[in-house]
Computed example of a mutant assay.
Amino acid sequence: MKDFTKELSFKASRSSGAGGQNVNKVETSVTVMWNVEESEFFNVFQKNLIQTKLKNRINSEGILQLTVSESRTQFQNKKIAIEKILEIVNDSVVIPKTRFKTKPSKAKVQKRLDSKKKLSDKKENRRFKF
């Protein structure tokens, strides 16, 4: 997990929604911004991975933005925003393992056929015969 917090920039704004006495005065909502192309922590291949997997979250200038207003304090929101952006980016860099098709073994196939035959014989024996 790469820690690129030095490249992050922050902007505070007023949180939306219902609130108390401080709702129109205190800027507690935090927007974290990170320029993907100018990052020095990731190589070109990883940057391309990030840009393709997070293309819906990256704006036209190539900046990944995330806004957090979960907590009542700016400090707590900043902490949450850092954790979230690190998690999102590091998850996008992971390449999933390729899945190879497998066949059931001959013994498993034979066992399945035997159980089908056994059930078929059982049902056949229940029939009323003249």
Rank of each mutant, 00 (worst) to 15 (best):
T98C: 08
P96M: 06
F130L: 11
R57Q: 14
K97Q: 12
L49W: 09
I58E: 02
V89D: 00
G20N: 07
K47D: 00
S105E: 05
T52C: 07
E124Q: 11
D91R: 03
T98Q: 15
M33T: 13
V93Y: 03
E87V: 08
E87N: 14
F128W: 11
N22E: 09
G19E: 05
Q74L: 11
E37I: 08
F100A: 14
S60F: 07
E87L: 13
S29M: 12
N35C: 09
I58S: 00
K101A: 12
T31V: 12
T98K: 15
E38K: 15
K84F: 03
S9P: 01
T28S: 14
K25V: 10
S71N: 10
S92K: 05
Q76W: 02
V30W: 00
T31Q: 11
S39F: 04
F42N: 06
K118F: 11
L86M: 08
R72T: 07
D3F: 00
G20L: 04
S92Y: 08
V26Q: 01
K116Q: 12
K47P: 00
T28P: 02
F4N: 02
N43M: 03
T28C: 06
R14S: 01
S9C: 09
V89C: 02
E83V: 04
Q110I: 13
K6R: 10
R99P: 06
K53R: 15
R99F: 10
I82A: 06
N24K: 13
V89F: 00
W34K: 03
M1D: 08
R14K: 13
T73E: 01
S69P: 04
K97Y: 12
M1F: 10
E37S: 14
F42Y: 13
I63T: 11
N24T: 08
T102N: 08
I58N: 00
E40M: 10
F42E: 03
